[in-house]
Write a protein that binds this DNA or RNA. Structure first.
Lengths: 109, 109
DNA sequence: CGCTTTCATCGTAGGATGACGATGGTCTCC
DNA sequence: GGAGACCATCGTCATCCTACGATGAAAGCG
């Protein structure tokens, strides 16, 4: 079972409804993940650099490494980003599908 | 100084930048306000009914009146909704500008 | 004036968040 | 194998969130 880097996942995500209880939960989860300036900044960073970044994120933020790692975890659990181990480093990248999903849900308000 | 119901406020809001630290803060604040299913539901309710709704919101949600009131407060503080006193009741309505602003900020990711 | 309705606020309890330093695990390189 | 780099996780503390019932304030009605 190989993990394809930054490849597609949750293929059916785009097909889910934009309204209803489930959509509310989904939107709330995604919005909550974005509900912190540091995490907004991280998402922007990862969107900017099409390529995956690593612990450079720590250098960009005025936060301790452990704190940044926690924010990354929150974003990862919300499905907005993805981390891939690359030797001693970990490369993070946007999950375009989740971001698109967020945009659709917000636009649907 | 009369409070015009559901009228325009924060007129310059649309003109603010979509990126930068201030935009990050703004997006984080708005996203955080949406970061709870009940609040997403409330926003949807208020968007649906163009007219302002009142404590009908309480009837629509499976939550105690005080809890709903707190969620309304959170949304109000984020600027997403607005409440206007109408006799013994309070009518809430969407702040279209803030909602538009949120859409722009999310779309700008 | 009292009574009711409608909301907001207070007080509170349990759980979640955000921040940090310290620790530990896993590669790479020597 | 050992050293160092990189990152996640643990432990901890302070703060915030979420939920509720109880209490209060304001407006309308008899």
């Amino acid at each position: 079972m190989k993990a394809t880097s930054c490849g597609p996942t949750n293929v059916e995500r785009d097909l889910r409804p934009v309204e209803g209880d489930e959509a509310d939960e989904e939107l709330a989860t995604l919005a909550k993940a974005l509900g912190h300036p540091a995490r907004v900044q991280i998402v922007r960073l990862l969107v900017r650099r099409t390529s995956c970044v690593c612990g450079d994120i720590v250098d960009e933020l005025p936060l301790a490494q452990s704190t940044v790692s926690q924010h990354l975890k929150v974003l990862k659990e919300a499905g907005l980003i993805k981390g891939e181990v690359d030797g001693p480093r970990v490369c993070y990248c946007i999950e375009p599908r989740a971001l698109r999903r967020l945009k659709v849900l917000v636009a649907g308000l």
